[in-house]
Design a protein around this nucleic acid. Structure first.
Lengths: 230, 230
DNA sequence: TGCAAATGTGAGAGATACTCATGTTTGTGG
DNA sequence: CCACAAACATGAGTATCTCTCACATTTGCA
């Protein structure tokens, strides 16, 4: 849909969706301003109804400046998604880093879910940004990737305390736990607070039960290598 | 965004997103043709990239005819979503209708998940249509409503075999089970078949475990009325 | 058969994402 | 402090899209 303009620096376009790498202070502030305004609009009316002209006006810049930094509308959404995903990954990694036993993993997991839920409650726009991503095939991949990253972080720790269990089974279970965790949080912030609380608690109980369950290394129901679909 | 044109019949616009109620055979076929073409395009490139002109051309009709029936692009997506939701609801109701005990509920549930998964495998476009809905705030509500309907169907049966458990707790658990079931199916059809199978089996094991668990009426981990968020 | 209602049509109005030629600001070496 | 190149800013313009409307055609029925 778009051809490269090839900015001065940034030979590899690795992690950022930015078109031009802002080097001066003014422009760096501008990028933040754009993202903040886009966030507010997405939260208010959804990404579908977000107009690029509206973002530019709200940020107090011209349409042209907007496109200096973001090659298209999806890039704004993508940048926001990547930021929130990075925060989530750090949060998961930090909590799991403390763990030295299966019992501690269980505790860490309970804490993790609470932190996660608080994050969603504090920034309900995370859900709107996620919704915005779903309509675009390329952006949907980012979401899936994020569940994989979270799942991998969990599986790395989990595997240490489940010596007999095949790594593949753990990977799969961890991936599902993380993905459904995300789904649960988004559901929880979509309904009234009291019901959301109840939902998050229910999910925590269901998952945590698997960590104290019978079988080597816990997770007796999620992990069952003999289970093959009929 | 749009003002009513007020079609001849259909005083209450209850269940359909159609603008005009097609009364002749030709037009009824046309609506089906439109939906079929839209489905194919959404599956191929996503709803975002679907052009109304493209749908019209593929269906062999003019743009004007397209708008005779669907007031806007979202209405097409909405109609498709409502159709799939209706199929899912019927499928759930049919399977639950047979149940006369908690053990049977467990079996019915296992079968239900398999049927559900097969539906998603046969019609992967269900996932794309769901994705299309997420970008629009009004359409997102439909998705939530569908989880509520499925949850209600399950809760009605479940409650019969869990006399001591508060209905509210059952409602909440059933809602979450159905919603996460949907999330699981969509995840499963997004990855390779072997991994998808594994994921669905894992979710089934996790949920079914709750139906044979200790406590009155099963569901010991999902249902815990004493659990309040710290 | 003739007429009214239903349906079909596509040029075009309005709106939006994105471009590009040109003007302005910033940092820097002399 | 100046000059100059690179970075940055601008907004009218272009391409493309959704949706409308005035009019043409087809259908069912008395």
């Amino acid at each position: 849909m778009k051809q490269e303009i090839s900015p001065a620096a940034a030979s590899a376009d690795d992690e950022t969706a930015l078109r031009r790498t802002p080097s001066q202070k003014r422009s760096r502030e501008r990028v933040e301003q754009i993202l903040a305004c886009a966030t507010a609009i997405i939260q208010e009316k959804g990404s579908d109804a977000m107009r690029m002209s509206e973002v530019a006006e709200k940020a107090g810049i011209s349409i042209g400046s907007l496109y200096q930094y973001f090659p298209d509308k999806a890039a704004i959404v993508r940048t926001l998604a990547e930021r929130y995903n990075a925060v989530c990954s750090e949060c998961i990694a930090a909590e799991l880093a403390k763990v030295t036993s299966l019992a501690e993993l269980r505790d860490a997991f309970a804490v993790l879910f609470d932190i996660y839920y608080d994050m969603f409650l504090a920034e309900p726009v995370m859900r709107d940004i996620w919704s915005a991503m779903q309509a675009d095939k390329a952006l949907r991949e980012i979401d899936l990737q994020q569940s994989r990253i979270g799942g991998r972080l969990l599986a790395d720790v989990w595997a240490r305390f489940a010596p007999g269990t095949p790594r593949e089974a753990i990977d799969s279970a961890a991936f599902l736990i993380m993905h459904l965790g995300d789904c649960t949080m988004r559901l929880a912030v979509s309904v009234e607070r009291a019901e959301g609380d109840q939902i998050v608690e229910a999910y925590k109980r269901m998952i945590l039960r698997d960590f104290v369950a019978d079988g080597p290394g816990g997770g007796a129901s999620l992990i069952d290598i003999s289970g093959v679909r009929s």
